[in-house]
Simulated scan of single mutants.
Amino acid sequence: MNDHRRDPTGHPDLPKFTDEPLTLLELLAGADEPTCTPYPPTNQEAGSIDKRCILRDQIWVDVRGHVHPLEDLTPAYRANVINYLRRTTPNWVVEAGAWLYLDEVAGRIDSAESARRHLLLRTAPPDWLEASPLLRRLRALVGDSNTQPLGAGGY
């Protein structure tokens, strides 16, 4: 069965179609959803983020839809992004499970792939976010800086 995930538009910043199984990070970022939206999104709803951001290591798209190169962010802003993600991503495993259930009901994935994805979600390590390209890059840029919340804004 051809996996319908990743970018069907051929946009250079998105992963291409492949028959390779989804990784945990791709599953949690919603990369299995058919999309015609290039990344970064141009019509992002204010107050939300595109979960695909964790798969990128060069830019951050804030809750207003503004694109920021990671190198241009201040250390305080980088720390706020890290803390924002640490606060908001714990629910992503539960959300991915709900979307997986809907894919099963709609017949979009076969039983073997469904079982494999359920196993990925059940065995997701608590620190899965730290393995994402975005967090690895932010950590490298922040260095030994404190990543405690630094006040309003910055994400």
Score class of each variant (00 low, 15 high):
131 A>N: 13
120 L>T: 08
81 V>S: 11
127 D>N: 13
8 P>H: 13
148 Q>N: 15
75 P>T: 03
122 R>E: 15
145 S>T: 01
54 I>N: 03
127 D>W: 07
88 T>N: 07
136 R>H: 00
94 V>F: 14
56 R>H: 13
131 A>T: 06
121 L>R: 11
12 P>F: 15
57 D>F: 02
23 T>F: 02
104 E>K: 06
25 L>D: 09
71 E>W: 13
134 L>N: 02
67 V>Y: 03
42 T>W: 15
108 R>I: 09
78 R>V: 00
150 L>V: 05
115 A>P: 02
146 N>M: 02
54 I>A: 04
56 R>G: 01
15 P>K: 05
12 P>R: 14
155 Y>S: 13
74 T>C: 02
120 L>A: 04
80 N>F: 02
75 P>F: 02
141 L>K: 00
96 A>E: 08
36 C>E: 14
30 G>P: 04
73 L>D: 07
114 S>A: 04
130 E>P: 04
66 H>S: 14
37 T>G: 07
148 Q>K: 07
91 N>G: 12
77 Y>A: 11
61 V>C: 08
95 E>W: 14
21 P>V: 09
12 P>Q: 11
65 G>Y: 06
23 T>C: 05
44 Q>E: 07
72 D>C: 10
77 Y>M: 10
49 I>P: 00
152 A>C: 09
81 V>R: 03
103 D>G: 11
155 Y>W: 15
135 L>F: 09
80 N>W: 01
45 E>R: 14
126 P>T: 07
141 L>C: 01
62 D>M: 04
49 I>S: 04
74 T>W: 00
